[in-house]
Amino acid sequence: MKVSVGITTLHLSQKSALLLLLATGLLGFGGYDYVQQSQAVDNAVAVQATITDSSVDRMDGGRGIDYEPEIQYTYKYQGETYTSEQVFPSTGVRTYSDRSRAESVVESYEPGTTARAYVSPADPDDAFLIRERTPFPLRAITIGGFLSVIGVLAGLGPKNPGQQELRPANEMQSAQHETWVDSHGETLHRLSKQGLGVCFVGFWLSMVALVFGLLNTPGEFGGPPQEIQAELLGPIGLPMLAGFSFWVGMILSLCLYGGWSFAEYQQLRRRLPDPKPPSPFRHPSRLITILGTEDNDLSEYGRRVRRTGWALMIAAGMTAVLVHLLYIAS
C-alpha cells in the first residue's frame, strides 16, 4: 500500500499499516484524555463532599497484581445531590503495583469524614477528589509516537533489503587484523546460547518458587490482601533475588550473542558485491524493514542482520523493564 505524505511516499506492508493504525489510536486517545484532564483541572470548582466508603481493591491481571484506590462520596452542587467514585480527573482507572501507594491515597478519605471534591460546571455529575493529571495520557502518547516512528521508518525503507546474495567465501581475502571476537567466536556463541537457556529456565523456576512462597504466606490469599515484608533470604525474598539475577543474566547473554552476531555480520558484509548497500545499523529504515521480514524471505546476510538487531533490541527492552521496576521499588 502506498501513502503519499508531502513529497514522500510511504510503501506500507500490512504489518506497517496495522502498526500505524495502532499508533494513531494511542496518540488520539492519549491526546483526548490529556485535554480532558487539563480542562477538568483548570475549570473545576471546589465543593464539600462526604466520604461514604473507601478501600483498596486488589486486581489480578495478566501482567501481575495491581491495586486500585476506591472511594465513594456524595456532594451537592447548585442544590442537587450527586454520588461519585472518581478519584482522578481521568477517563481511565489509575492503579498501583505497590499496595502501600494505593493505601496512601485512601488513608486521607475515611468514611464519615468530609473532604474537598472538584466539579466541572459543564458536567456536575462527574466530580473527582485529587486535582492532578494522571500519567496515562503521556504514556499513551509516548508509546504511540514510538510506534508511529517505527511504522514510518518501515514505510520509508526499500522494499526488499536484506536479500543481497553473497560472493563465495573462497573469493575473499582474509582480514588483515583478526579481532578478539573473531578468534573466540565459537566460544562466545556457545556461552551466549547456554547462558541464555540456563537463565531463562532459572528465571521461570524462581517465579514458580515465588508463587509457592506467596501461597504459603499467611493472610495474603486467605484473607484481605496485606503488604508483605519479605526477608532477603526468606521464601519470598530469595526467589525474587534469584529472578533478578537470572533476568540480568539473560540481558548479558543477549548482549554477548549480539556482539558475536555483529562480528559475523561484518564478515558477511565483506562478501557483498560492489557497490555495497548502506549498512542497516546506520540506516534505521532498512533495519526496521529487515526486522519485520521473515527469515525465509532473507538471504544469509539479511538473516544475520535480523538476528543481531532482535537480540540487541530485546536486551535493550529487558534493560528498560528492569530500570522501571527498580525505579518503582525505590
Rank of each mutant, 00 (worst) to 15 (best):
K2F: 13
M250N: 03
Q48P: 04
H184D: 05
Q229T: 15
L138A: 14
P137A: 09
L210Y: 08
F146C: 12
A315Y: 04
L322W: 08
Q86V: 07
W180R: 09
A44I: 04
P275T: 06
H11P: 10
A320N: 11
Q226H: 13
G234Y: 01
F29Y: 08
I251C: 11
I130N: 02
E178L: 13
Q226A: 15
R307Q: 12
S38W: 11
G62W: 14
G31T: 13
Y34I: 08
P273H: 05
E132D: 14
A49Q: 01
M172N: 14
L191R: 10
T91E: 09
L326Q: 14
T289L: 09
R307C: 05
E264F: 05
L10H: 01
A23V: 13
F246Q: 00
L205F: 10
S261E: 14
Y327P: 01
R307S: 11
C199A: 15
F128W: 02
D123T: 15
A154H: 06
A115Q: 03
T142R: 06
A315Q: 00
N296Q: 14
R270A: 12
L26M: 14
L18Q: 07
G302R: 02
S100E: 15
G219W: 08
P273E: 05
L256A: 06
I288Y: 01
Q163H: 08
A263C: 11
P89N: 01
F244S: 11
Q14M: 11
S253V: 11
K15Y: 04
P239N: 08
S84Q: 07
Y109A: 06
P89Q: 04
N170A: 14
G144V: 07
Q36Y: 03
G222R: 02
D66F: 12
K159D: 15
I288K: 00
Y77E: 05
T8L: 13
R270V: 14
G237R: 00
P89E: 00
K76P: 10
F88P: 01
F221C: 10
G292W: 00
L129P: 00
I328G: 10
E132I: 13
R58M: 10
L268F: 07
P168T: 08
E227D: 12
G31E: 08
P161E: 09
I236R: 01
Y75H: 04
G237H: 00
L298K: 03
L22M: 13
S183A: 12
E80C: 07
E110T: 13
R270H: 12
S299Q: 08
P239M: 09
L252H: 11
V41I: 15
G213M: 04
S148Y: 08
R116Y: 10
M313T: 14
